[in-house]
Nucleic acid binder design. Structure first.
Lengths: 216, 216
DNA sequence: CCGCCATGTTTACAGCGTCAACATGGAGCA
DNA sequence: TGCTCCATGTTGACGCTGTAAACATGGCGG
């Protein structure tokens, strides 16, 4: 794998696709999905605009790549957040769910541009991995995050904090609450909040969530 | 107030601002906020693109007008949905909250373009009505919908289905759950759902919400 | 060593938001 | 009644965008 750090501009870039994705991700980071401008990404890489068409079918395809990366970042934030929460009791199970939510919300507030990019457009339900991963490859990132949620809710049910009769369908309630909290705070729909107010309001929402799931 | 339905193209339109808003709203209805293209709206009205600058400071200003209209539509949907739910008991209070949520979600699913337009960009927290309505005018639509939510939560508390100690901060939980449900279903993040599956999953989420709010 | 074709470039076009300069005609005043 | 002013429209231009077509380059397999 050759290194391409040399300043010499060579006709063939060598790693243009990834370079474009990195540039596009940077654009998305500050500016959101609408800032992912194909020509701007090409300009940053030092390449002509149309060169991008050798690696992407168009701007929307580049944006899709950014979206994939953003979803992976979201998953990473969730995984990091629940590290160490591995107990067996009811409280540990509840903390597992909350930790996932905290990672989700913190990512949205720390990287609003990427978070918005991760959920832009409609997720095509007939993606490349519609029938499972083809050759042992990875699931789509969003599938992965949904799987984490499922596991944590299973643990919640196993610990007795979620009646078995209500286990099915719990994913939507949990995801909706967490996503809604993230979107509303990120969009400043509750006004400007101090960091302390933010954590307070977020924790309250998570408490309501797990309490609702625990109801008979 | 003159009528301008005549086919004769007159140099001075007479009601251009509202005509442009109507056209822009139509664009937003199918296509969302990114479909609100100034030149397209002007074309629909049969007027030059730059004419719009006599009534709007630019495209973002036109989009802001669309957003206002969309928020009013959302409020109307919520009001219609809770019509007739005026009882006094605990169950009536719960139904009041749920009715608001149902109107919210149904609007999002019936008019996704308008719903997305209603929440595009960040709500500028220092809007024209930051210090209350200036001269007896209306509150900003979003303030109105938030007020409806507040009232229904007050009723819930009064009926005993929301402990007084947890009354404060309940708005976020409720709004987040409802908003999250709307966004996730609208964005097809749970796959394609039949109408029946949709109502089922929505009602479940609302059950979890009111159960969570009722917890001690 | 050579030729192919993956990967780059240049050029071009239409549509977008926006500005400047110009045109029109209705409302108010002489 | 008639004139004039300016709110409201128009045309033209600029730079930006996405994208297509035609052309250039040079690394790699034969």
């Amino acid at each position: 794998m050759p290194e391409h750090r040399s300043g010499k501009p060579r006709y063939h870039h060598g790693d243009l696709r990834n370079a474009l994705v990195r540039a596009a991700v940077d654009l998305a980071r500050d500016g959101g999905p609408e800032a992912v401008v194909l020509r701007a990404a090409a300009r940053r890489v030092g390449v002509s605009a149309t060169a991008a068409y050798r690696h992407f079918s168009g701007q929307s395809d580049l944006l899709a790549a950014v979206k994939d990366h953003a979803q992976q970042c979201l998953v990473a934030a969730m995984e990091e957040s629940r590290e160490g929460i591995r107990g067996e009791g009811v409280e540990a199970a509840r903390e597992g769910v909350k930790a996932l939510g905290r990672g989700y919300v913190r990512f949205a507030l720390r990287e609003p541009g990427l978070f918005r990019s991760a959920f832009c457009g409609t997720v095509d339900p007939l993606g490349a991995d519609a029938a499972g991963p083809p050759h042992g490859g990875q699931h789509h990132p969003q599938v992965r995050s949904f799987q984490m949620l499922t596991e944590s809710l299973d643990a919640l049910a196993e610990a007795g904090a979620l009646p078995a009769t209500r286990r099915q369908g719990a994913e939507l309630s949990a995801w909706a609450m967490v996503h809604g909290v993230a979107v509303l705070i990120m969009g400043r729909h509750l006004g400007e909040l101090t960091q302390e107010q933010t954590t307070q309001v977020v924790e309250r929402a998570f408490d309501d969530l797990v309490a609702g799931l625990a109801a008979p």
